[in-house]
Amino acid sequence: MREAPDPPSGPAAGERRRDAGATRRRLLDAARDLFAERGYEGATVREIAERAGANQALLFRYFGSKQGLLTEVVAQGGLEQLRATPPEELFETALRSMLTSSAAGSSDRSLEVYLRSIGRGDEATGTLRELGERYQSALAELSGAKDGALRADLAMAWLLGIGLMRTVVAREPLAGADPDTVCRLVVGALDHLWSAPQEDASQMIAPEEG
């Protein structure tokens, strides 16, 4: 009776492990760029695998599903950026990343994925909503006012609106504007949002009745 072959070991096994890691990274990179370009629904598993130069079966082996792939793309991009960035630097970091990430191969295109995918498919909504809520929570820390969450939402609305006009609508002159110029104008104006005093409702004068 023939003995079963020994399990792979040595350089050949190590090489396969390295190849698996490289394939996984290529799938993540391809998914990140296609989700940013076409949205979650518009990017197919076949296209992601083809861009990565991998078999579709490997995508499901490594990530379980297309939704699982999206979750990891968002975790490696936006959520990792949130963990690594101080709240006071987050808005400018996210804005600059979005302004400079229109080219494929950029490390974080999470907000582009968010813009093109949120609200367009129930499968992706939970993952993307978590990303938006995490940003809102971090930005809310920048104001000591009771309406800090509202101010954070206004900041997010401005951030995503800029992304929409620049990367999705591609409206000039914003689409071709220098990122440094945009950051200087936006971040300078945003300082007032964090520091503006909250209006005291008790001091508001009610309109006179006629």
Score class of each variant (00 low, 15 high):
residue 97 S to D: 12
residue 86 P to Y: 11
residue 10 G to R: 12
residue 39 G to K: 00
residue 31 A to N: 10
residue 48 I to W: 02
residue 90 L to N: 14
residue 41 E to Q: 09
residue 56 Q to H: 07
residue 157 A to M: 11
residue 94 A to V: 14
residue 97 S to H: 15
residue 33 D to T: 07
residue 82 L to A: 12
residue 14 G to F: 02
residue 161 G to C: 04
residue 123 E to K: 00
residue 54 A to L: 10
residue 71 T to W: 00
residue 169 V to G: 03
residue 60 F to I: 14
residue 46 R to T: 15
residue 37 E to W: 00
residue 111 L to E: 05
residue 34 L to Q: 01
residue 136 Q to W: 03
residue 3 E to Q: 10
residue 95 L to G: 13
residue 2 R to F: 13
residue 168 V to Q: 08
residue 91 F to L: 12
residue 174 L to V: 04
residue 32 R to E: 00
residue 19 D to T: 13
residue 131 L to E: 00
residue 17 R to Y: 11
residue 4 A to D: 13
residue 149 A to P: 09
residue 188 G to L: 06
residue 182 V to N: 07
residue 22 A to D: 06
residue 43 A to I: 05
residue 76 Q to K: 14
residue 204 M to C: 03
residue 170 A to Q: 09
residue 53 G to C: 09
residue 157 A to R: 14
residue 29 D to G: 01
residue 209 E to H: 04
residue 52 A to H: 06
residue 97 S to K: 13
residue 82 L to T: 11
residue 16 R to Q: 06
residue 35 F to A: 01
residue 162 I to P: 10
residue 19 D to N: 13
residue 36 A to Q: 00
residue 21 G to I: 10
residue 10 G to K: 08
residue 192 H to R: 10
residue 99 L to T: 07
residue 115 L to C: 03
residue 3 E to L: 13
residue 143 S to W: 13
residue 87 P to C: 14
residue 88 E to C: 07
residue 157 A to L: 15
residue 155 A to F: 08
residue 37 E to D: 11
residue 28 L to E: 00
residue 205 I to M: 13
